[in-house]
Nucleic acid binder design. Structure first.
Lengths: 193, 193
DNA sequence: CCCAATATCTTGACGGTGTCCACCATGGCG
DNA sequence: CGCCATGGTGGACACCGTCAAGATATTGGG
């Protein structure tokens, strides 16, 4: 049915998508704690109750937002991995991409790992997929960097590196580490040759 | 003036302390996001507005709570540092203490590094002192572990280790790493001999 | 010793938020 | 064509942080 009137249609058509994007946009300037369902609805030009039909509750929306944010974080690392040549450089580049993406979108980054959003041990399907892909990416990079290591050692070193990169990013967003120190710190952690 | 009646005195006497302790107690079972000033006041048996005379606002209380939590985190590491003998063992013990304390009190730990509580770059005086003490503790442990390193290299490696330990703790509280993997991961990061 | 100034606590109000409920518009299927 | 599931609306409720104004205890100066 063609709508001649300029008034908005009663049914939005793609509200879920719109709301998720609005929430992500708000996270560019506001903390997750300051993100209200009502404000997101307002941004989308819709009643304060419309989101409930798509996400159930506030946590539901945030879970979706976290999935999107995680997908973007993963993509940033994949781009960095493809651009690098040598194993050590690739490992460094992936870590740097992680940290830089976190610093560029600190509030979205925080949502990904907020235990209030995704309670420990019960990740969303999409989130679990992205996390696994991220672990694989990292494990591969570590394996190329230390080809002689056992699978267990590789996995352990990968976990340690994830922790290091994640911690550096978190501490930097909290203002406890200067931006310039991040890459050198990461570099200091990787043994040379 | 001696108070014979059993009714609570109009003036509490030590309300600030009581409120901070109540807040810390609530953080044992609830996330910081779920911690309301009114609930804290209720726990202390006081009107919903009493806290404002001591902390100004919610953030004020949380800042104090963060200071206390940081002091406890620091103390846990200091105990671990004293108990260990060899440099490498001490470094590992300090890191493990950090992670274990974070896992034992995840919500209080989160408050320490919550950018909403202490906005980046403007720490409280007491918080700055504790953070500095923590950095010194770590730097000393690193220096003992790698005595031949330059001051800059020591500082850089210390920052990297802080990041690693902090990240491992954060990821573990979010359910992304199993508890048992934390110490081995940390161990894998410290070169042997 | 008394009283005023001050610090502390209370009651009351306001706007904002998440969520539940009942109701209405729409479009696709029988 | 009519029905009804889907998706949107408005209203209500309890809770929250915060501000304003009033009540009460403590304290220091005369």
């Amino acid at each position: 049915m063609l709508r001649v009137s300029r008034s908005a249609p009663y049914h939005h058509g793609n509200l879920a998508e719109t709301l998720e994007r609005a929430a992500l946009a708000l996270l560019e300037t506001h903390t997750a704690a300051a993100l209200s369902l009502r404000e997101v609805a307002r941004q989308a030009g819709v009643s304060h109750n419309a989101p409930y039909h798509h996400f159930g509750d506030r946590q539901g929306l945030l879970k979706r937002v976290a999935e999107r944010a995680m997908a973007e974080l993963l993509a940033a690392q994949q781009r960095a991995a493809e651009a690098a040549q040598l194993p050590r450089e690739r490992l460094l580049a992936v870590g740097a991409a992680y940290v830089e993406h976190a610093l560029a979108h600190p509030n979205a980054f925080a949502v990904i790992f907020d235990p209030d959003v995704c309670e420990p041990g019960h990740p969303t399907e999409a989130m679990a997929v992205s996390i696994r892909a991220n672990e694989d990416l990292l494990t591969d990079a570590v394996a190329a960097f230390r080809p002689e290591s056992s699978a267990e050692q590789t996995s352990l070193f990968g976990a340690a590196l994830w922790g290091a990169v994640h911690g550096l990013a978190t501490l930097a967003t909290a203002g406890h580490l200067p931006r310039e120190a991040l890459r050198p710190a990461l570099d200091a952690l990787l043994p040379r040759d």
